[in-house]
């Protein structure tokens, strides 16, 4: 019954295909504003870690986009569950919880990787071309796996749309700004650094940035992301039954 994941993923891709042009515009707006305002206008003469601020910013934005778009699958599930009741179609299908979670997580990861790729394209007119190698994409895959899995778990546990919005405001937005996206963490006091190293996005931003700069990536970042991803995926599977009343 594990093969049911393909049906779940197929449905999400049909919807994604139909909405892709609108979604791409939505995915492009915020990064473009960050690039223009912070990267180009404010950070024109700023150099961080021997790179222009734009070069520093783009890997951070890519890591952030992979997080926010992977987590956004939770909102889609939320709407399907509470508003359209389409979630019942999955609950009544002869597929396992793991198959359902895998299909939704892969859909979230697909959105995340498309949104990340879009930012790399947006960087080209600003003259930013970095090293988009295997380690770069591996970090993005792991980061999107972490947040898509967490999104599915959260979507199963919450009881309303309002809960979803609250979680976005309390968890995702602070992480987006503090997880090494816009500035190096060594600019912060040691205790703040300790706290921020607990966030998966911090490790994703470090891994993405290091590989984009052609440096040797830190294996620890990948191991931490892989461990959190595994735990989050397991949590998502365990929470599916909680959505039944």
């Amino acid at each position: 019954m594990m093969r049911g994941w393909m049906a779940v993923y197929f449905r999400e891709m049909l919807i994604l295909r139909r909405r892709l042009s609108r979604l791409m515009i939505a995915w492009a707006v915020s990064p473009l504003l960050y690039l223009v305002a912070f990267g180009y206008a404010m950070g024109k003469n700023v150099v961080i870690q021997e790179h222009s601020y734009l070069e520093f910013l783009i890997p951070g934005l890519v890591a952030m986009a992979s997080m926010t778009q992977a987590f956004a699958i939770g909102s889609e599930i939320n709407i399907a569950r509470f508003y359209w009741h389409i979630f019942e179609e999955f609950q009544t299908a002869p597929i396992s919880n793991a198959a359902y979670v895998l299909g939704e997580v892969l859909a979230g990861m697909t959105r995340a990787l498309l949104a990340s790729g879009l930012i790399l394209i947006l960087g080209i007119p600003f003259g930013v071309l970095l090293s988009y190698n295997l380690f770069f994409w591996l970090a993005l895959v792991l980061n999107s796996l972490v947040f898509a899995s967490l999104a599915v778990a959260v979507a199963m546990l919450i009881q309303s749309h309002a809960d979803q919005a609250l979680l976005n405001s309390l968890i995702i937005t602070p992480m987006a700004f503090l997880g090494g996206t816009f500035f190096p963490l060594d600019h912060l006091p040691w205790w703040a650094q300790k706290i921020l190293y607990l966030l998966p996005l911090t490790h994703a931003a470090q891994a993405v940035r290091a590989s984009a700069f052609g440096a040797q990536p830190n294996v620890v970042d990948y191991l931490i992301l892989a461990t959190i991803a595994g735990l989050a995926f397991l949590l998502a599977i365990l929470t599916v039954n909680r959505a039944r009343d």
């Binding site: 093969r3 393909m6 049906a7 197929f10 919807i15 359209w84 179609e89 299908a93 002869p94």
Partner: peptide, 30 residues
Amino acid sequence: QQYGLVPQHINLDSDLTVFENLLVHGCLHH
């Protein structure tokens, strides 16, 4: 695998065609 369900509320994917809605259901049932 034994049953089909017609729920009280219309829970079709409104952004998909009739064909796509039925095809997704077929895929869910292998």
